[in-house]
């Protein structure tokens, strides 16, 4: 998010910060891999309820997943906007992405509260433990993403994001899309597939 020009000449011809972001995302694969692995290991192993089949509300979560998916579209439209110098488009799409992200988060907050009412907590059983920690970590990533988007939005509003700085949007986008694809995996493996 700094105002630095793209790196001059680099050994690979790739921008330093973009390479850094990709390395970060590669290592994030291991982070989410571990969390998902723990969920899968303990799936169906809870000694007491409530169990996933008692709680999951597939239509609701599908809408959530859809919201996050669409936020990826608006995110990439924000990038396309700044790349052609369309400041107004940039602001609109950034704002939409942040709002969709917030919508997803409120959906998650609602879901957590509902589950909690039904008696599921971090300590109630293995399902509660692995579910809350996995989706909670994902939610924390989305939260950070929203903060980044809002920060960029403020910068855009002040006119401090010019066409030449589109890399800032691109990097935020890479992060955002990654968080989105993690949810694609979670949605299928955790919600839709239940043995």
């Amino acid at each position: 998010m700094s105002h630095t020009p793209a790196a001059l000449e680099t050994g690979t011809g790739l921008d330093n910060r973009k390479l850094l972001m990709w390395l970060f995302l590669a290592s994030e694969c291991l982070l989410f891999g571990s969390l998902i692995g723990a969920y899968l290991l303990y799936r169906g192993q809870s000694v007491v309820g409530p169990y996933p089949e008692d709680l999951f509300d597939i239509p609701f979560t599908s809408v959530s997943a859809f919201v996050l998916l669409m936020s990826s579209v608006t995110m990439v439209l924000a990038l396309a906007a700044i790349q052609r110098g369309d400041q107004r488009g940039l602001r609109i799409w950034l704002l939409s992405t942040a709002l969709l992200g917030l919508l997803f988060l409120s959906g998650q907050a609602f879901e957590f509260t509902e589950f909690n009412h039904e008696g599921l907590s971090l300590s109630s059983n293995l399902f509660g433990t692995t579910f809350f920690v996995l989706t909670g970590f994902h939610g924390a990533h989305v939260t950070v993403g929203v903060l980044i988007l809002l920060s960029l939005l403020v910068m855009a509003w002040r006119g401090r994001l010019t066409q030449s700085q589109s890399l800032n949007i691109e990097l935020a986008g890479l992060y955002w899309h990654f968080v989105d694809v993690v949810w694609i995996v979670i949605f299928t493996l955790i919600y839709l597939i239940q043995p």
């Binding site: 303990y42 809870s46 000694v47 293995l126 509660g128 433990t129």
Partner: peptide
Amino acid sequence: ANFFNFEAG
């Protein structure tokens, strides 16, 4: 939480 709590599985 119960990640390593053998009593909870």
